[in-house]
Design a protein around this nucleic acid. Structure first.
Lengths: 211, 211
DNA sequence: AAAAAGTCGTGATATTTTTCACAAATTAAT
DNA sequence: ATTAATTTGTGAAAAATATCACGACTTTTT
């Protein structure tokens, strides 16, 4: 694999940079400075330059960055040349939102299979993604290593265990349950209620200056 | 307001602790240690003790924490005694998922109004939440200060501006657009595509040890 | 009653992340 | 050509966050 030198905080921002560079490129822009980028993605310009510097000297002093070059660089860094297949577990409201959400733009990740416990959904498809029964995870998951988990919290743990047994090593967990997995499996939690609640907390306790 | 001493990282974890304490309390548990808590919420136990210590000495050496006491403490710290009203802008797939998602449990945040640009949705309601037309934001938003933004990216900036004019100071932004707001407005971004892409990046570049 | 086990709160330390600030290089303007 | 304006890349400093490790105190066991 790559050099482990890239800080996690930086790695998390890469997709953001990548998407914005794509936009610029589509608009026909040829060059961009860390300052412009900063205003667009709301990340301090020094942080952006630092982030880029982990990959070497990608810019030119007094000029900025060549959009096309930078884009190409990030495309390969983010492995955008190959498609990553992802499965969705739980085609409820949130799951369906994912299926209809077009990740396709600027991005080579595809949800290719969905699973649900509701027999009436099985056999159908949502936006071209076929729905299987959760009981058939073992049969149908194939080589998929990354899943989006949008099942009820009560099911999360048990399903996660089964997924891990099938070789899944990345889980984007939207359930409030904090699942327990072996250390070679990476789980990213997105907890909608927590996000909303912490936003409210910040508003009440960290008054922002009114400029 | 409160003491600004509480680190942001701590503040972000408070809702998580709160929810888990609620669970424990409902199960009838009387005491809990930082170690148990740690295993449940997947946060290092020293970090938990440190987090709690910002609020004073809430526990007892050799014993742990009294669940009911701690829960009560966090309830008031998180202002759970008063209801916070929130509006949802954009009742598409993702927005609808929010409306049907029960935040209600363990939490005093309520989505009381929704807005959408689709005239055919206006006047109806989803799970009891009435839907207004986005053109009527100015008329119907009332005193709501926090919104969940689930509109198409292209609309985000313009709608955000209007919301801010109406007094909104907290936005949970689910669009990929990085919106520009005055400094007294707090925006939390949740970027689903970025989350998924960065998970994939981590998997490919940061192999976890197979214990 | 004494010993053993458990657990907090926190000083100190380590790690991670962000930001400052400026020399060096490039481009643009005069 | 010269001067002025930009802008990178990065050493150094600052800020934020996480973790270690242990004294002090409580509970549990013997």
């Amino acid at each position: 694999m790559d050099q482990n030198k890239i800080p996690q905080a930086t790695a998390k921002r890469l997709p953001l940079y990548y998407r914005f560079l794509n936009n610029l490129n589509q608009q026909g822009k040829r060059r961009v400075s860390s300052k412009e980028l900063s205003e667009a993605v709301k990340v301090d310009s020094a942080t952006i330059r630092r982030d880029f510097s982990y990959f070497g000297a990608l810019g030119k002093k007094g000029y900025g960055y060549n959009v096309e070059y930078l884009l190409g660089f990030f495309r390969s860094t983010l492995d955008q040349h190959e498609v990553t297949e992802v499965a969705l577990i739980g085609a409820g409201n949130l799951g369906t939102a994912f299926l209809k959400y077009s990740f396709l733009k600027n991005n080579n990740i595809r949800i290719t299979k969905a699973f649900d416990a509701d027999a009436s959904k099985v056999g159908k498809d949502i936006d071209g993604v076929p729905i299987y029964h959760v009981d058939d995870i073992e049969k149908e998951l194939d080589n998929i290593r990354v899943v989006i988990l949008t099942v009820p919290a009560s099911e999360a743990e048990e399903i996660a265990e089964r997924l891990v047994k099938e070789g899944v090593n990345g889980i984007l967990n939207f359930t409030p349950a904090r699942i327990t997995v072996p250390s070679h499996v990476r789980v990213h939690h997105i907890d909608l209620a927590v996000e909303l609640q912490s936003l409210v907390y910040f508003l009440k306790h960290y008054p922002l200056e009114v400029e």
